[in-house]
Write a protein that binds this DNA or RNA. Structure first.
Lengths: 344, 344
DNA sequence: TTGTATGCGTTATCAG
DNA sequence: CTGATAACGCATACAA
């Protein structure tokens, strides 16, 4: 019966009022009489009137929507970030339209164009793996659309950024191993060219330095993408080092998990013989045996922060849109894989 | 320099053409001369013109966008479904706006209203846990907006549905245990009132029946939400049953994982003493020890199917929008937790 | 407190 | 092949 095509014009005719009065009543404009406002809203409800935001948006030149570009939605980290974004966007009255680049540069570029046409009011993005040149995002600056990167951020275009303090996290993870008695600590590292992984190596080294432990290069195993398989390979190599490491800081949970499995197969006890710390706090880390000490990457909070930052910039558009970089402090989650009595 | 405010009117003035010509040229209308079309497009590119989809949408009464409501984005299953939705929506020229109900009925209702105002052309939803009465979705039928549920579907409102064949999956999982030599098979079940879990119990029983095995009620352990902790409790109870079960079919991976841990602590060998099958194929299941035989729930494919179905309905609007229920066949992924030589 | 008139940027219906 | 003009549904400056 009642169908969606009801407009304020229909309401106006029914009530013998002008459409402006209807419009104002619906928006609780102070100049409209209480009684009129009530009547209008009542009829609107009865008729199942739903305002057409397209029209309203066109008129106000607003869309109340933000665009999000992630490499893949189904990666735990990204889905957590998105969850944080949606949560705060919802509370602040924005909705979020999602795109996956699937790590394809071509698609990432195509999506930036769609986002412009869609007139989103702001963009949150994490660069895809293929993206070395991110100038396709520069257009957003030209047309004054706020842009916030998280995790994999752009060097080519000015923008706000939300990242975690990888150096600090790695430092604390390593120091935790030291505090728990480890003296010969290895590191399974990520790609040598990626900033966040470089920072983790530095944090690891700095912690050793602080405690007068030597940073032995052959205790650092680099991988290309921190895969589960690479972790196993690295762990096996570490088993050939003498003296055997008594602790390992891994740059993610995948490698930590496979390292632990390799060590267990070699009849080493975790954490007594080798303690292990991971990075990211995957769901599995609290379930596996032993449970894994790891760095919580605060994905949800990153999303919240990115959304807050973005929306602030959207709504302060007149001001100088100063780019801002927010560094989120991480938590060390201590579990069984490092639970041993400190010795020495 | 070039900013977003360029409109077809600007292009028209620059080229001394009418806005209709510009509009048509931009849309490759056949009646416009090749040369003109080329010139228009060239200038548009130079000036960084981006069509205002808001205006176009208002005019055409289209939005090219679909709304998705999920309980939580950061649950592995849902993020996979969303990924499938986004993937096919993108290919078909739609974009997806995402909302989380966070299992709150109030929020779910609020979101359905936002979706109406946003004039999305279709809705894909998975009901939240609080939702027993889903009549707030009925409005979409009234205003002829196609609606597709997945996984947790509505009984109250007519709609299309995409679900997996839980009975068949459970049947095959149980039969696999039988084929691998198990004769005394237990089941860790979900909530007694939820359709999908009831179907899994039935599938389990049917497999036993087919192979002339008795369905012993005390081998079925019901849980309320299939949590990791409940799985452990059930597993401990199963250890007190005589004769000890030689196989367990669990209604999800969480309970399978904790059951395996309990069994291992009790010095039982997996799969030799007890074989275990899970349900969902979480990432962890291929990593844990032993790797877990499980049912792949085809989340990504569910998303693709839901999106295809929805968009077909959107574009066939004139036809009678027959509700359709699609049942997706699942895969049994055989891994080490059931890898034993069939005996008897 | 309410009404009139105009325009947001497009597309579509007419003519020419 | 091209142009003038009227919508789409709403918000608002200006009047009354």
């Amino acid at each position: 019966m009642t169908n969606s095509r009801i407009t304020i014009k229909d309401l106006a005719e029914r009530l013998n009022l002008s459409i402006s009065t209807i419009s104002r009543a619906l928006n609780d404009h102070p100049s409209i009489g209480k009684k009129t406002t009530k009547e209008v809203k009542k009829l609107a409800r009865e008729l199942g009137f739903t305002p057409n935001t397209m029209a309203s948006n066109l008129r106000r030149n607003k869309t109340q929507s933000i665009g999000v570009i992630v490499p893949r939605i189904d990666i735990h980290f990204h889905s957590h970030v998105i969850s944080g974004i949606e949560e705060t966007a919802y509370r602040l009255g924005y909705n979020v339209t999602i795109f996956q680049s699937r790590d394809s540069l071509e698609r990432e570029i195509a999506v930036t164009e769609i986002l412009q046409a869609k007139r989103v009011e702001g963009v949150i993005a994490c660069l895809g793996l293929e993206t070395t040149d991110s100038r396709h995002f520069a257009r957003f600056n030209e047309i004054k659309i706020p842009l916030v990167f998280y995790d994999r951020v752009s060097k080519d275009v000015e923008s706000s950024k939300v990242i975690i303090d990888d150096f600090d996290a790695a430092f604390r993870a390593t120091e935790h191993l030291i505090n728990t008695g480890c003296r010969n600590i290895a590191h399974i590292a990520g790609n040598r060219n990626t900033d966040i992984f470089k920072a983790r190596v530095k944090g690891y080294k700095a912690a050793l330095l602080k405690h007068d432990l030597e940073a032995n290069e052959n205790l650092i195993q680099y991988t290309s993408e921190l895969s589960y398989e690479e972790g196993a390979t690295c762990a096996k190599k570490l088993l050939t080092v003498t003296p055997l490491p008594d602790g390992v800081f891994c740059a993610n949970d995948n490698t930590a998990i496979s390292a632990i499995q390799v060590f267990k197969k070699a009849n080493l006890r975790i954490p007594e013989d080798i303690a292990v710390v991971g990075f990211s706090n995957y769901p599995i880390s609290s379930i596996m045996e032993p449970t894994l000490t790891t760095i919580d990457d605060r994905a949800f909070e990153m999303g919240q922060t990115a959304a807050k930052l973005l929306i602030r910039q959207i709504e302060d558009k007149d001001q100088n849109i100063a780019s801002e970089t927010i560094v989120i402090k991480t938590d060390l989650i201590v579990r069984d894989s490092t639970n041993r009595n400190p010795k020495g």
